[in-house]
Amino acid sequence: MAARISPADVAHVARLARLELAPEEVELYASQLAQVLDYAAEVAALDTEGVAPTAHPLPVRNVLRPDVPVPGLSREEALSQAPEVEEGQFRVPRILGEEP
């Protein structure tokens, strides 16, 4: 199947991925993503009826450790590289509400 990716699709995906693309980037990615997806069509067309998906190469199960507290990063260390901190917490711009 030939993949057709419209600029509107690209803009939608960019929104989902929290990326802000310039108009020329939208054009470029539309053609490049279509090219890669065309190449991927080779596997998209394979008959995989009844084949179980592999999410992980190892037969690993949930790995649990004893529920005993162990020391981690101190609050000071955890906050030390944040762009903005206030009262011992990460500070972010406004999440809810109207434009100021």
Partner: peptide, 12 residues
């Protein structure tokens, strides 16, 4: 069509 299929191909 894409991610799920690629995971099944990974099994193959």
């Amino acid at each position: 069509a894409y991610y799920g299929q690629a995971q099944r191909v990974r099994t193959l």
